[in-house]
Amino acid sequence: MSFDVSLIFSALPKMLMGIGLTFQLLVLSGVLGLALAIVLMLMRVSGKWYLDWLAQAYIYVFRGTPILVQIFIVYYGFPQLEFIREGILWPIFRDPFGCAIVALTLNTGAYVSEILRGGVLGVDHGILEAGEALGLNRRQRFTYLTTPIAARLALPAYGNDVISLLKSTALASTITLADMTGIARSIVAQTYAPYEIFISLAIVYMIITFFIQKLMARIERWLGRYTVRTGQT
């Protein structure tokens, strides 16, 4: 086997043209997924059995099936349904980018909601009791006490999920999207040089992951500034 380094240098700029799409997939489904996750988490901790049950069922379905299958169902399956073709959301489902965003959002939302719930359950009960004794109502306790503390507790696991989502975006290439992986696959199809291309692609993902880790560490330091015993703030 020969390893052609020059091929990497010619392929890299082409693959990097897909980085914008990769980021769009990551950021858009990350933000929408977080919003969905917050709703699901609130349903889980609402104390209303039917909301809890509904959220649990949703989470079970989306954690219990492969993300690739979910993407295929949205992309190949939904357009078969007449009410989707005639619904107002058709512009989204007609477009592979829209389908990818929908599938990634629905998937990450399920995972992140459980991460957030872990954070909420981790808040020391005594702190909430102190808020209660001071007269804060349920909503105020949740907003001013639970949320900021739970956010810090959930962050390490959440960072993990963001990195996982980055890699899931590569699956969008299976439904014709030309993200970095999509471009890499078409280059491989032309050059028959899978090692060079996919290894350099892997390195690009690692570099992006590195920056996500750094960003998360910074947010963690900021959210956890009150856990540092020494020094003034």
Binding site: D124, G126, I127, E129, A130, G131, A133, Y144, L145, P148, I149, R152, Y226, T227
Partner: peptide, 12 residues
């Protein structure tokens, strides 16, 4: 007003 054994200040 109430004061607890474990203080229960808001840590954040």
């Amino acid at each position: 007003g109430m004061v607890f054994q474990s203080f229960n200040l808001f840590p954040h």
